[in-house]
Write a protein that binds this DNA or RNA. Structure first.
Lengths: 166, 166
DNA sequence: ACAACCAGTTGCATATCGAAATCAGTTTTT
DNA sequence: AAAAACTGATTTCGATATGCAACTGGTTGT
């Protein structure tokens, strides 16, 4: 899988890197959920990834340059996983994926609101979000606009609305 | 896999439908290579899919509404596979995937030219291509612009250029 | 000292994947 | 009419991936 590539097609090579059921889930959680530790990724996502799968994917993604890991100074065993420039550039792909899923699967309202906002926001919002991710994950200067906060606020608003409607 | 979904997240549901190493390859070939028969999909793609996997994926994709199959009147055993509206709407996703792969993998120049054009063309080109796919696969009226021809011409130009340079 | 927490690892059962060979029906060639 | 080639698969079987639960070796807070 490392050396023997099936073809030089960019779509194929992307699939060889990310074409499984978990890699993009992990990147999604890092990106939209700001989960940075193993335990957070393990327990706080709805899909319920197994610890061995998570460990394997974190290793693979790190090896292929999509994630980086550094030690957490507050805890000798904890590692902090970060997105890298290549994985930050997956924002448009994940936005399109969310937009498609929102239309063509039975996605829940609560979990679709972020996809809806990202779709409406378009490329301008994507680049703003990428700027913010560079600040959060790569130490770049913090931009004024926080797309993350916008998405989170919208999500919580839908959750609150639906809780009231029950 | 049919009934038990891991979560209602649109990204997750998209991954559950398309998150493997072959489904999008097949859709790509149908979309950009205009392969419509089992044999064409089996033999004319660089990645070399096995026939059992192809049969399995064609069945799954058809069941989930991403492809449709009709009999070929010229041959009792042949089927003609077509994209459906949901899979035609994967154009922006595949465009983003190609754009990402072109930047972050060692994609070959020849196979990257389509991705490059689609990226430069942007949403206007994507919707034009989707119109054309609706004509090719769903019997919609044929639009004036043929993105398919543009992509093919660019691809052949690069192939010719590289053949000369050898 | 102790309990809770941390990032994984190990072992094992099951499910899925994948390559090659094979299959039966259909069409084309001789 | 017989043989050859083509068609969309299916079968076989080994390899790989997944999922679950228990476990490891260490760290932190009380």
């Amino acid at each position: 899988m490392d050396t023997a590539q099936r073809s030089g097609c960019p779509i194929n090579l992307t699939l060889e890197m990310l074409g499984d059921r978990w890699s993009l889930i992990i990147i999604r959680d890092l990106m939209f959920g700001n989960r940075r530790h193993f335990r957070e990724l393990l327990t706080q996502s709805e899909e319920g990834i197994a610890s061995n799968i998570l460990a394997d994917r974190l290793r693979r993604l790190t090896e292929s340059g999509l994630l980086s890991r550094r030690d957490d100074p507050s805890h000798k065993q904890k590692g902090i996983y970060s997105l890298t420039e290549p994985s930050i550039q997956l924002v448009p792909l994940l936005a399109q994926m969310g937009a498609w899923g929102r239309r063509h699967t039975q996605a829940s309202e609560e979990l679709s609101i972020r996809a809806e906002l990202l779709e409406e926001g378009g490329p301008a919002m994507w680049t703003a979000f990428m700027e913010e991710l560079r600040a959060l994950h790569l130490g770049a200067p913090v931009p004024e606009r926080s797309v993350f906060a916008e998405l989170q606020a919208a999500y919580l608003a839908v959750v609150a609305k639906n809780a009231r409607a029950e």
